[in-house]
Nucleic acid binder design. Structure first.
Length: 512
DNA sequence: TTCCGACAGTGGGGTCGCAAT
DNA sequence: ATTGCGACCCCACTATCGGAA
């Protein structure tokens, strides 16, 4: 298949807003793919590279290359070239990769170049990624969409399922079962604003500690243990403590879901930055493990002794977990039967926060494990802080925000009467707010020559955030975690905004 | 007819590791 | 040694489509 065909369909998919039409377009293309094209075409149209990331980013791809007049590239040629590209390493590799990318872009038409750019930067913005590709695949093969979706979640990969379906037909779906050693996409949670609200929605539920670490799925098959992240990357080699802990459990075959986190000598959890840094260390794992040891803490069991537990209610899965994993290696929890327990549950959350944890996750006891989905039966609750900050500048948006000032630079007052930037945010704005702030900020602009529009520091905005973290980038030495806009405060003047001093005082835990 | 679940899009900060300077 | 860049951890929120109620 020609890359041009694929690039054109991607363009068409992007141009329509109707999901049903996107699905039909993808289905038609999948149906036309030859057997050898399938493992390439499917991931490409779901916006992903079979090779994973290639060490080629926006910088390299932005170098202009004259496009070819006629389309000649086939998807298989492109795939082969990208495979070679991924193998280039060592000194001079950056230049070599740049050269290969240049060759590829030079052989591509303008439309193909656009598509390749999106693919290689991981920003195929066509309004159709995994979920829509799954529906398209189902339509192309006549398989029930729910069955295809489930197979993809259990295989952890759309491409594997697509290959089997398109070459062997619907019967191949039965092969995709939960298997020890093959990771499945983890279940995710929605947000609720309070524990009471979450309980009202879920009824009988468990309120569990939410630890601020790295999500892990631990597979043990006899003496072999593998540890996977939320995106199914294998990080076994970086976490010898987790392997050791899994081997000390009594069961010999299981799949567990949990969090890896580092506790300090005082027993309190270390900051996310410290845990993530440790888990990210690959070079000298044993030295890293000495200074920042991590512990696995589990909250769910997906498989025990080859029994697939995914479709059991959470209460039964947890009973299996409790039989296998001793209490100190499980998250703390409180059981709730109904709204009458709200007070107790709120107290549990308060105690969890007092122990230094992030918040809680409220889970319906009757819910199955919805692999790969953000099910409504898990609700996370975290405390939210707010500040009044001053807009120092704004950046022009991309995509559907093109032509709108989007990303705000946020400042707090300093002792000398100026402002210290604490970070940026683009979250929480409605289209109407984007419209309004684009107008208003341009009135306040003092420099609008680049992509950052600097403004007079006069506009006050109320910001929600999850906490403070250390920063080497910003002048106060701290930045806001997950900052988002709540509303503009035109009733406030910049001198009413919060100060760096009060912010630091409110977060003694960061120690700045 | 209205409501709501699922998805995609729009980017945020930090850390690590590698290559280039 | 330092800097730049890419990969991958953590993530919130809004708009939209289309099926459920």
């Amino acid at each position: 298949m020609l890359l041009a065909r694929l690039a054109h369909v991607s363009q068409e998919v992007a141009a329509t807003s109707a999901r049903s039409r996107k699905i039909a377009l993808l289905a038609e293309l999948f149906g036309d793919a030859e057997a050898d094209d399938v493992p390439i075409v499917i991931p490409y149209l779901a916006g992903r590279l079979p090779q994973g990331r290639l060490g080629v980013g926006w910088k390299v791809l932005s170098r202009p290359v004259a496009p070819a007049a006629e389309p000649t590239l086939t998807v298989r040629e492109v795939d082969a070239l990208l495979t070679d590209l991924g193998k280039v390493s060592g000194p001079g590799s950056q230049a070599e990769r740049g050269r290969l990318v240049g060759d590829l872009m030079g052989a591509a038409t303008k439309e193909e170049q656009r598509f390749l750019f999106g693919l290689l930067t991981g920003e195929v913005r066509q309004g159709a990624l995994d979920a829509v590709a799954v529906e398209g695949l189902a339509q192309a093969t006549g398989a029930p969409p729910a069955d295809v979706r489930r197979a993809v979640m259990l295989a952890g990969s759309l491409q594997t399922v697509a290959q089997a379906l398109l070459t062997e037909g619907t019967a191949a779906l039965d092969r995709f079962r939960l298997t020890v050693g093959r990771p499945v996409l983890p279940m995710l949670a929605h947000t609720a604003s309070s524990v009471t609200e979450a309980i009202d929605k879920l009824g009988a539920c468990a309120v569990e500690e939410k630890l601020d670490g790295i999500r892990v799925q631990v597979h043990r098959d006899g003496d072999a243990v593998r540890v996977y992240t939320r995106t199914l990357d294998d990080i076994t080699d970086r976490l010898p403590e987790v392997t050791g802990a899994a081997l000390r459990l009594r069961g010999r075959r299981f799949v567990l879901d949990g969090e890896v986190i580092s506790f300090g000598e005082d027993g309190r959890p270390r900051s996310f930055q410290e845990t993530a840094g440790r888990v990210g260390s690959r070079v000298d794992v044993h030295t890293a493990a000495k200074s920042i040891p991590v512990s696995p803490v589990f909250f769910d069991a997906l498989s025990v002794d080859d029994r697939d537990l995914l479709d059991l209610p959470f209460s039964e899965r947890h009973a299996e977990l409790a039989a296998l994993v001793p209490e100190p290696m499980r998250v703390r929890r409180a059981l709730v039967t109904g709204p009458e327990d709200a007070g107790m549950a709120e107290a549990f959350m308060a105690a969890t926060l007092a122990r230094g944890h992030e918040g809680v996750v409220v889970k319906a006891l009757d819910a199955v494990y919805s692999a790969g989905r953000r099910g409504a039966s898990w609700l996370k609750v975290k405390p939210v802080h707010t500040l009044d900050l001053v807009v120092l500048a704004a950046e022009w948006g991309h995509g559907r925000r093109t032509g709108k000032l989007s990303n705000l630079h946020l400042g707090a007052r300093t002792a000398d009467g100026g402002f210290a930037m604490l970070g940026k945010t683009f979250k929480g704005m409605t289209d109407a707010m984007l419209e309004w702030q684009t107008e208003r900020l341009q009135e306040l602009a003092v420099d609008s020559s680049g992509y950052v529009v600097t403004v007079r520091p006069e506009l006050v905005v109320e910001i929600a955030y999850d906490g403070l973290q250390r920063s080497t980038r910003y002048p106060a030495g701290v930045t806001l975690r997950f900052a988002r806009v709540l509303r503009y405060r035109e009733d406030k003047r910049p001198e009413d905004a919060d100060t760096v001093e009060t912010l630091l005082a409110a977060h003694p835990e960061v120690g700045v």
